[in-house]
Design a protein around this nucleic acid. Structure first.
Lengths: 152, 152
DNA sequence: TTGATATCATTTGCATACGAATGATTTTGC
DNA sequence: GCAAAATCATTCGTATGCAAATGATATCAA
Protein backbone atom coordinates (compact mmCIF):
# COMPACT_ATOMS: atom_id res chain seq x y z
CA UNK A 1 0.00 0.00 0.00
CA UNK A 2 2.78 2.38 0.70
CA UNK A 3 5.00 1.09 -2.02
CA UNK A 4 5.72 4.52 -3.38
CA UNK A 5 6.78 5.93 0.00
CA UNK A 6 9.06 2.98 0.65
CA UNK A 7 10.83 3.41 -2.62
CA UNK A 8 11.31 7.06 -1.85
CA UNK A 9 12.86 6.27 1.51
CA UNK A 10 15.15 3.72 -0.01
CA UNK A 11 16.38 6.20 -2.53
CA UNK A 12 17.07 8.71 0.21
CA UNK A 13 18.86 6.17 2.33
CA UNK A 14 20.97 5.10 -0.58
CA UNK A 15 21.92 8.59 -1.62
CA UNK A 16 25.69 8.58 -1.15
CA UNK A 17 25.72 10.12 2.31
CA UNK A 18 27.13 13.35 0.82
CA UNK A 19 30.63 12.61 -0.21
CA UNK A 20 33.43 13.66 2.09
CA UNK A 21 34.35 17.29 1.52
CA UNK A 22 37.91 17.75 2.61
CA UNK A 23 37.77 21.49 2.03
CA UNK A 24 35.00 21.87 4.60
CA UNK A 25 36.61 19.89 7.39
CA UNK A 26 37.74 21.92 10.37
CA UNK A 27 41.20 20.36 10.30
CA UNK A 28 41.85 21.30 6.73
CA UNK A 29 40.61 24.87 7.17
CA UNK A 30 42.64 25.23 10.35
CA UNK A 31 45.75 24.17 8.50
CA UNK A 32 45.10 26.60 5.67
CA UNK A 33 44.35 29.52 7.97
CA UNK A 34 47.50 28.76 9.91
CA UNK A 35 49.45 28.68 6.66
CA UNK A 36 48.17 32.06 5.60
CA UNK A 37 49.05 33.53 8.96
CA UNK A 38 52.58 32.15 8.74
CA UNK A 39 52.99 33.73 5.31
CA UNK A 40 51.82 37.12 6.58
CA UNK A 41 54.14 36.82 9.56
CA UNK A 42 57.11 35.94 7.39
CA UNK A 43 56.41 38.88 5.10
CA UNK A 44 56.42 41.34 8.02
CA UNK A 45 59.04 39.78 10.27
CA UNK A 46 61.56 38.06 8.11
CA UNK A 47 64.24 37.27 10.64
CA UNK A 48 62.18 35.53 13.32
CA UNK A 49 59.59 32.75 13.27
CA UNK A 50 56.27 32.91 15.14
CA UNK A 51 57.42 30.41 17.79
CA UNK A 52 60.63 32.39 18.32
CA UNK A 53 58.67 35.59 18.66
CA UNK A 54 56.23 33.91 21.03
CA UNK A 55 59.11 32.86 23.26
CA UNK A 56 60.56 36.37 23.34
CA UNK A 57 57.18 38.02 23.93
CA UNK A 58 56.37 35.66 26.77
CA UNK A 59 59.77 36.16 28.36
CA UNK A 60 59.26 39.91 28.18
CA UNK A 61 55.94 39.38 29.93
CA UNK A 62 56.91 37.04 32.74
CA UNK A 63 60.65 37.58 33.09
CA UNK A 64 63.04 34.74 33.79
CA UNK A 65 61.56 31.24 33.77
CA UNK A 66 62.72 27.70 33.26
CA UNK A 67 62.81 26.34 29.75
CA UNK A 68 60.13 23.83 30.66
CA UNK A 69 57.82 26.40 32.18
CA UNK A 70 58.27 28.64 29.16
CA UNK A 71 57.23 25.73 26.99
CA UNK A 72 54.04 25.34 28.98
CA UNK A 73 53.29 29.05 28.66
CA UNK A 74 53.65 29.08 24.89
CA UNK A 75 52.23 25.62 24.22
CA UNK A 76 55.38 23.88 23.08
CA UNK A 77 56.67 20.53 24.19
CA UNK A 78 60.09 20.19 25.76
CA UNK A 79 61.85 19.00 22.63
CA UNK A 80 60.47 21.80 20.51
CA UNK A 81 61.14 24.58 22.96
CA UNK A 82 64.73 23.47 23.28
CA UNK A 83 65.36 24.02 19.59
CA UNK A 84 63.67 27.41 19.65
CA UNK A 85 65.65 28.57 22.67
CA UNK A 86 68.91 27.24 21.25
CA UNK A 87 68.45 29.36 18.15
CA UNK A 88 67.50 32.45 20.14
CA UNK A 89 70.57 31.95 22.30
CA UNK A 90 72.81 31.56 19.25
CA UNK A 91 71.54 34.98 18.14
CA UNK A 92 72.15 36.57 21.51
CA UNK A 93 68.50 37.30 22.26
CA UNK A 94 68.24 35.13 25.36
CA UNK A 95 70.68 33.84 27.95
CA UNK A 96 70.63 30.63 29.91
CA UNK A 97 71.70 29.92 33.46
CA UNK A 98 71.35 26.93 35.73
CA UNK A 99 68.98 27.40 38.63
CA UNK A 100 71.01 27.89 41.80
CA UNK A 101 69.07 25.51 43.99
CA UNK A 102 67.34 23.14 41.59
CA UNK A 103 70.13 22.29 39.23
CA UNK A 104 67.85 20.45 36.84
CA UNK A 105 66.26 23.70 35.74
CA UNK A 106 67.64 25.77 32.91
CA UNK A 107 66.60 29.37 33.43
CA UNK A 108 65.92 31.49 30.37
CA UNK A 109 65.91 35.28 30.28
CA UNK A 110 66.05 38.04 27.70
CA UNK A 111 69.31 39.82 26.99
CA UNK A 112 69.23 43.58 26.51
CA UNK A 113 69.17 42.96 22.80
CA UNK A 114 66.34 40.49 23.22
CA UNK A 115 64.33 43.06 25.14
CA UNK A 116 64.97 45.68 22.49
CA UNK A 117 63.95 43.23 19.77
CA UNK A 118 60.64 42.43 21.43
CA UNK A 119 59.89 46.12 21.86
CA UNK A 120 60.62 46.75 18.23
CA UNK A 121 58.57 43.79 16.97
CA UNK A 122 55.40 44.06 19.04
CA UNK A 123 53.93 46.82 16.84
CA UNK A 124 54.69 44.68 13.81
CA UNK A 125 53.03 41.70 15.48
CA UNK A 126 49.91 43.79 15.99
CA UNK A 127 49.95 44.64 12.31
CA UNK A 128 50.26 40.95 11.49
CA UNK A 129 47.26 40.15 13.64
CA UNK A 130 45.27 42.89 11.94
CA UNK A 131 46.26 41.76 8.47
CA UNK A 132 45.39 38.15 9.23
CA UNK A 133 41.94 39.23 10.38
CA UNK A 134 41.50 41.81 7.63
CA UNK A 135 38.90 39.78 5.69
CA UNK A 136 36.58 40.03 8.69
CA UNK A 137 34.72 42.88 10.34
CA UNK A 138 35.84 43.71 13.90
CA UNK A 139 32.80 41.96 15.29
CA UNK A 140 33.41 38.87 13.17
CA UNK A 141 37.06 38.85 14.20
CA UNK A 142 36.07 38.92 17.86
CA UNK A 143 33.64 36.05 17.28
CA UNK A 144 36.26 34.01 15.49
CA UNK A 145 38.80 34.54 18.24
CA UNK A 146 36.28 33.55 20.89
CA UNK A 147 35.13 30.38 19.13
CA UNK A 148 38.63 29.39 18.16
CA UNK A 149 39.79 29.78 21.76
CA UNK A 150 37.08 27.40 22.85
CA UNK A 151 38.35 24.60 20.64
CA UNK A 152 42.05 25.35 21.30
CA UNK B 1 43.08 77.77 24.47
CA UNK B 2 42.65 74.07 24.25
CA UNK B 3 45.34 73.30 26.78
CA UNK B 4 43.21 70.92 28.77
CA UNK B 5 42.30 68.85 25.74
CA UNK B 6 45.92 68.60 24.67
CA UNK B 7 47.00 67.32 28.04
CA UNK B 8 44.27 64.75 27.98
CA UNK B 9 45.43 63.49 24.62
CA UNK B 10 49.01 63.24 25.81
CA UNK B 11 47.97 61.14 28.77
CA UNK B 12 45.99 58.84 26.54
CA UNK B 13 48.88 58.48 24.14
CA UNK B 14 51.23 57.63 26.96
CA UNK B 15 49.01 55.03 28.54
CA UNK B 16 50.98 51.80 28.12
CA UNK B 17 49.16 50.74 24.99
CA UNK B 18 47.80 47.65 26.79
CA UNK B 19 50.59 45.18 27.01
CA UNK B 20 50.83 42.55 24.28
CA UNK B 21 48.70 39.54 25.05
CA UNK B 22 50.19 36.60 23.20
CA UNK B 23 47.37 34.28 24.24
CA UNK B 24 44.80 36.49 22.51
CA UNK B 25 46.58 36.81 19.18
CA UNK B 26 44.96 35.01 16.29
CA UNK B 27 48.24 33.34 15.32
CA UNK B 28 48.76 31.81 18.73
CA UNK B 29 45.18 30.58 19.01
CA UNK B 30 45.33 29.16 15.51
CA UNK B 31 48.45 27.22 16.39
CA UNK B 32 46.87 25.84 19.56
CA UNK B 33 43.62 24.86 17.87
CA UNK B 34 45.59 23.15 15.16
CA UNK B 35 47.62 21.30 17.80
CA UNK B 36 44.51 20.05 19.52
CA UNK B 37 43.08 18.84 16.25
CA UNK B 38 46.29 16.97 15.44
CA UNK B 39 46.16 15.26 18.81
CA UNK B 40 42.55 14.18 18.28
CA UNK B 41 43.42 12.93 14.81
CA UNK B 42 46.38 10.95 16.06
CA UNK B 43 44.26 9.36 18.78
CA UNK B 44 41.66 8.16 16.25
CA UNK B 45 43.86 7.39 13.26
CA UNK B 46 47.21 6.28 14.52
CA UNK B 47 48.77 5.02 11.34
CA UNK B 48 48.25 8.01 9.06
CA UNK B 49 48.85 11.74 9.43
CA UNK B 50 46.32 14.42 8.45
CA UNK B 51 48.28 15.43 5.33
CA UNK B 52 48.53 11.80 4.27
CA UNK B 53 44.81 11.32 4.79
CA UNK B 54 44.08 14.55 2.91
CA UNK B 55 46.05 13.27 -0.06
CA UNK B 56 44.20 9.96 -0.09
CA UNK B 57 40.79 11.57 0.36
CA UNK B 58 41.43 14.03 -2.44
CA UNK B 59 42.66 11.29 -4.75
CA UNK B 60 39.52 9.30 -4.01
CA UNK B 61 37.54 12.38 -4.95
CA UNK B 62 39.23 13.45 -8.16
CA UNK B 63 40.93 10.30 -9.36
CA UNK B 64 44.36 10.31 -10.93
CA UNK B 65 46.19 13.66 -10.95
CA UNK B 66 49.72 14.94 -11.15
CA UNK B 67 51.67 15.29 -7.96
CA UNK B 68 51.78 19.05 -8.45
CA UNK B 69 48.07 19.38 -9.05
CA UNK B 70 47.36 17.27 -6.01
CA UNK B 71 49.51 19.63 -3.99
CA UNK B 72 47.42 22.57 -5.17
CA UNK B 73 44.21 20.76 -4.25
CA UNK B 74 45.32 20.00 -0.70
CA UNK B 75 47.32 23.20 -0.14
CA UNK B 76 50.80 21.74 0.00
CA UNK B 77 53.84 23.01 -1.79
CA UNK B 78 55.75 20.78 -4.17
CA UNK B 79 58.49 19.84 -1.73
CA UNK B 80 56.04 18.85 0.97
CA UNK B 81 53.70 16.88 -1.23
CA UNK B 82 56.61 14.86 -2.55
CA UNK B 83 57.47 13.62 0.92
CA UNK B 84 53.85 12.76 1.67
CA UNK B 85 53.38 10.87 -1.59
CA UNK B 86 56.69 9.04 -1.19
CA UNK B 87 55.54 7.69 2.14
CA UNK B 88 52.11 6.71 0.82
CA UNK B 89 53.79 4.94 -2.08
CA UNK B 90 56.15 3.09 0.26
CA UNK B 91 53.04 1.80 2.02
CA UNK B 92 51.35 0.72 -1.17
CA UNK B 93 48.45 3.15 -0.91
CA UNK B 94 49.21 5.09 -4.08
CA UNK B 95 51.01 4.34 -7.30
CA UNK B 96 52.98 6.64 -9.55
CA UNK B 97 53.30 6.71 -13.33
CA UNK B 98 54.80 9.14 -15.77
CA UNK B 99 52.32 11.02 -17.91
CA UNK B 100 52.37 9.57 -21.42
CA UNK B 101 52.45 12.84 -23.29
CA UNK B 102 53.85 15.37 -20.84
CA UNK B 103 56.76 13.51 -19.41
CA UNK B 104 57.40 16.09 -16.72
CA UNK B 105 54.26 15.08 -14.89
CA UNK B 106 54.18 12.37 -12.26
CA UNK B 107 50.70 10.95 -12.11
CA UNK B 108 49.41 9.76 -8.74
CA UNK B 109 46.51 7.39 -8.21
CA UNK B 110 45.11 5.21 -5.46
CA UNK B 111 45.83 1.52 -5.37
CA UNK B 112 43.02 -0.86 -4.46
CA UNK B 113 44.38 -0.88 -0.93
CA UNK B 114 44.48 2.91 -0.93
CA UNK B 115 40.86 3.07 -1.99
CA UNK B 116 39.88 0.61 0.71
CA UNK B 117 41.80 2.58 3.29
CA UNK B 118 40.05 5.84 2.43
CA UNK B 119 36.68 4.16 2.60
CA UNK B 120 37.51 2.75 5.98
CA UNK B 121 38.87 6.04 7.37
CA UNK B 122 36.28 8.55 6.19
CA UNK B 123 33.82 7.68 8.99
CA UNK B 124 36.65 8.07 11.48
CA UNK B 125 37.55 11.43 9.94
CA UNK B 126 33.99 12.58 10.45
CA UNK B 127 34.25 11.56 14.09
CA UNK B 128 37.48 13.54 14.36
CA UNK B 129 35.80 16.62 12.95
CA UNK B 130 32.92 16.21 15.38
CA UNK B 131 35.24 15.74 18.34
CA UNK B 132 37.30 18.78 17.41
CA UNK B 133 34.15 20.88 17.27
CA UNK B 134 32.57 19.27 20.32
CA UNK B 135 33.08 22.32 22.58
CA UNK B 136 30.77 24.30 20.29
CA UNK B 137 27.08 24.14 19.47
CA UNK B 138 26.24 23.18 15.88
CA UNK B 139 25.44 26.79 15.08
CA UNK B 140 28.71 28.00 16.61
CA UNK B 141 30.62 25.33 14.72
CA UNK B 142 29.09 26.49 11.46
CA UNK B 143 29.99 30.10 12.27
CA UNK B 144 33.55 29.15 13.12
CA UNK B 145 33.97 27.20 9.92
CA UNK B 146 32.60 30.05 7.87
CA UNK B 147 34.78 32.74 9.47
CA UNK B 148 37.86 30.54 9.43
CA UNK B 149 37.35 29.82 5.74
CA UNK B 150 37.32 33.54 5.06
CA UNK B 151 40.76 34.05 6.56
CA UNK B 152 42.20 30.82 5.13
C1' DT C 1 68.42 7.44 55.22
C1' DT C 2 67.46 5.23 51.14
C1' DG C 3 64.92 3.28 47.49
C1' DA C 4 61.03 4.49 44.48
C1' DT C 5 59.00 8.09 42.05
C1' DA C 6 58.70 12.43 39.85
C1' DT C 7 60.51 16.28 37.30
C1' DC C 8 63.61 18.76 34.04
C1' DA C 9 66.31 18.55 30.17
C1' DT C 10 68.37 16.26 26.22
C1' DT C 11 68.66 13.26 22.28
C1' DT C 12 66.93 10.60 18.44
C1' DG C 13 63.76 9.55 14.86
C1' DC C 14 60.11 10.75 12.00
C1' DA C 15 56.90 13.94 9.56
C1' DT C 16 55.38 18.22 8.01
C1' DA C 17 56.45 22.86 5.97
C1' DC C 18 58.63 26.21 2.96
C1' DG C 19 62.32 28.95 0.36
C1' DA C 20 65.76 28.57 -2.97
C1' DA C 21 68.38 26.31 -6.40
C1' DT C 22 68.55 22.86 -10.12
C1' DG C 23 67.35 19.88 -13.96
C1' DA C 24 64.10 18.09 -17.35
C1' DT C 25 60.53 19.01 -20.39
C1' DT C 26 57.09 21.75 -22.63
C1' DT C 27 55.11 25.94 -24.35
C1' DT C 28 55.49 30.65 -26.22
C1' DG C 29 56.98 34.35 -29.00
C1' DC C 30 59.16 35.88 -32.70
C1' DG D 1 62.09 26.45 -35.99
C1' DC D 2 64.41 28.16 -32.05
C1' DA D 3 65.62 30.80 -28.18
C1' DA D 4 63.25 32.41 -24.00
C1' DA D 5 59.99 31.59 -20.62
C1' DA D 6 57.06 28.63 -18.07
C1' DT D 7 55.96 24.34 -15.74
C1' DC D 8 56.84 20.00 -13.17
C1' DA D 9 59.57 17.61 -10.16
C1' DT D 10 63.58 17.01 -7.15
C1' DT D 11 67.02 18.25 -3.75
C1' DC D 12 68.97 20.86 0.04
C1' DG D 13 68.79 23.53 4.12
C1' DT D 14 66.33 25.20 8.03
C1' DA D 15 62.60 25.17 11.46
C1' DT D 16 58.82 23.48 13.85
C1' DG D 17 56.37 19.55 16.23
C1' DC D 18 55.80 15.30 18.77
C1' DA D 19 56.74 10.47 20.77
C1' DA D 20 59.86 7.76 23.07
C1' DA D 21 64.05 6.79 25.44
C1' DT D 22 67.71 8.43 28.50
C1' DG D 23 70.26 10.86 32.08
C1' DA D 24 70.55 14.02 35.92
C1' DT D 25 68.58 15.80 39.89
C1' DA D 26 65.04 16.36 43.39
C1' DT D 27 61.25 14.76 46.24
C1' DC D 28 58.61 11.36 48.66
C1' DA D 29 57.73 7.47 51.55
C1' DA D 30 58.76 3.74 54.28
Amino acid sequence: MTGARKVLKLVQAELPDERYRLQEQIGFVLRKAHQRHLAIFAARIADLTPPQFAALAKLADVGETSQNQLGTLIAMDAATVKGVIDRLKARGLVELTRHDIDRRRLMVSLTAEGRATVGRLIPLAETITAETLAPLSPKEAATLLKLLSRIA
